[in-house]
Simulated assay, not measured.
Amino acid sequence: MSVIYLDNNATTKVHPEVFQAMEPYLRDEFGNPSTGYDLGKRSNEAINKAREQVSSFLNANEEEIVFTSCGTESDNAAIYSALNAKTEKRHIVTTSVEHSAVILFAKSMMPNIEITELGVNSDGVIDLNELENAIRKDTALVTIMWANNETGICQPIHEAAKIVQAKNTLFHTDAVNAAGKINIDTNKSPIDFLSISGHKFHAPKGIGALFVRSGSPFSPFLIGGGQENGKRAGTEAVAQIVGLGKAAELAQQRISSNGTEKLASLRDRLEKNIFKKIEGAHHNGCQKRRLPNTSHLSFENVDAGDLLILTNEKGLCIASGSACSTGKREPSRIMKAMGYDDERAMSSVRLSVSSMNTEKEIDEASEIIVSCVKKIRSLRPKDAGPVIFAS
């Protein structure tokens, strides 16, 4: 059975050109980039090229790019740096829909930090007036996710960054799910720190980057050797860095060639097929402020857990809008933050396409979703709990 993959906000398939670029550094070009002989020098040159590719991707300077292991490390490093910059400032402003890498790090590593979480409306968007009023004299950092990984809703990052700059406060954005889908230009906004992760746009897992604007304070999160110009210790993962660079180059090419519009076309085709055949289907969040690849939908009288079981059996990979753990299912905290009730939250799924999906896959996926929704509804009494299919 072939697999149709529509969970590209979770991770993406490594692009063939990315794999091809990485392969030599997994075989014969294995030199340590810190060594002085030619084998090591070639690895160092490969890292320099990747840094150039990533900086071009973000319209940044090469010295502003720090390679990390993932988006989580990038988020952690940005928060750590901001809090170390002025130790008398112990207040952070963030939102109620951030990735846990932001909030949990601040709470667990620095328990004396006060955190203000901005709410969002039913569209999933913050209030800029509330942001401005939340920033205090002791605010060390404002950190706001560019695009939510679950709903795809984009925050007004440019406007937020300007408000924060006017308050003489540092600004960080987690752009992990935005990168590769929409254009990101660090010269257009006064952003101090910006996080990305390669596996979200067809690079391998285990590699990310942190943009640190020139002049913004930075404290190394990992201490040891002088790698990454003294900003991150540890022997560089050359193959992964090369992969990130190539993926950034390809993403930049796609975006400049109407790639964003092509993603939106696939997403819209998927939604049109579904809404044409299913009553009681709803969008969650603002349709005009979402990523071009992301569709977050809820289906009346359908439990998302049941839907995922059935679609998986038919070879379709999608994601639930609810967090699942062993023996326990809870409504998505993102949906709850947007003001939706438990029933709406538990009936929600995320469909996220990529440039590697085809129209044929989109049409087949929509047929699978339609048939599975109809099957669940036929077996589930109205307002009842999940059917719980055996997988």
Results as ranks from 00 to 15, higher is better:
Ala78Arg: 09
Leu170Tyr: 07
Lys13Ile: 15
Ile376Thr: 08
Ala85Tyr: 14
Ala160Asp: 10
Arg51Pro: 04
Arg267Gly: 03
Lys89Met: 07
Ser355Tyr: 14
Val142His: 06
Ile4Gly: 03
Leu308Trp: 04
Leu128Asn: 00
Leu316Trp: 03
Phe30Val: 14
Asp342Gln: 12
Ala85Ser: 14
Ile255Phe: 08
Phe67Gly: 00
Ser108Leu: 07
Ala319Met: 11
Val164Gly: 06
Ile388Met: 10
Glu261Tyr: 12
Asn129Asp: 10
Val373Gly: 05
Glu279Val: 05
Asn187Leu: 13
Val242Gln: 11
Gly226Phe: 10
Ala264His: 13
Cys70Ala: 15
Ser2Asn: 12
Arg377Glu: 11
Lys188Val: 04
Asn187Val: 07
Ala345Leu: 03
Thr169Cys: 15
Ala323Leu: 14
Pro292Thr: 13
Met110Trp: 08
Leu6Asp: 02
Thr72Asp: 06
Asp75Trp: 08
Lys188Trp: 00
Leu58Asp: 14
Glu159Asp: 12
Arg254Val: 04
Thr294Phe: 00
Thr294Met: 11
Leu104Ser: 15
Ala85Cys: 03
Val373Met: 01
Ser371Lys: 13
Ile309Asn: 01
Ile318Asp: 02
Thr235Cys: 06
Leu39Pro: 00
Glu117Ser: 13
Pro204Phe: 00
Phe67Lys: 00
Ser34Met: 11
Ile126Asp: 05
Val18Ala: 10
Arg380Pro: 01
Asn121Phe: 13
Phe193Glu: 11
Leu263Tyr: 06
Arg254Asp: 14
Ser298Arg: 12
Thr358Val: 09
Leu131Asp: 04
Val349Gly: 03
Val142Leu: 08
Leu291Gln: 13
Asn112Ile: 02
Ile113Gln: 00
Gln240Glu: 09
Gly305Val: 15
Gly36Leu: 11
Ala281Trp: 05
Lys288Leu: 14
Val125Pro: 02
Phe105Gly: 00
Gln227Phe: 12
Ile223Lys: 15
Lys246Asp: 06
Ile144His: 12
Gln252Thr: 13
Ser347Lys: 09
Ser332Trp: 01
Ser195Cys: 15
Asn293Asp: 09
Asp342Ile: 09
Thr358Cys: 08
Ser378Phe: 02
Arg90Leu: 09
Arg42Gln: 11
Ser352Asn: 04
Leu194Glu: 09
Ile113Ala: 01
Ile47His: 10
Gly36Lys: 13
Asn273Thr: 04
Ser257Arg: 07
Thr143Glu: 07
Ser219Asp: 02
Arg27Trp: 02
Asn129Gln: 07
Phe67Ile: 05
Gly198Val: 14
Thr116Leu: 06
Ser122Met: 11
Asn149Asp: 08
Ala323Asp: 10
Ser108Lys: 12
Ala281Asp: 03
Lys382Tyr: 14
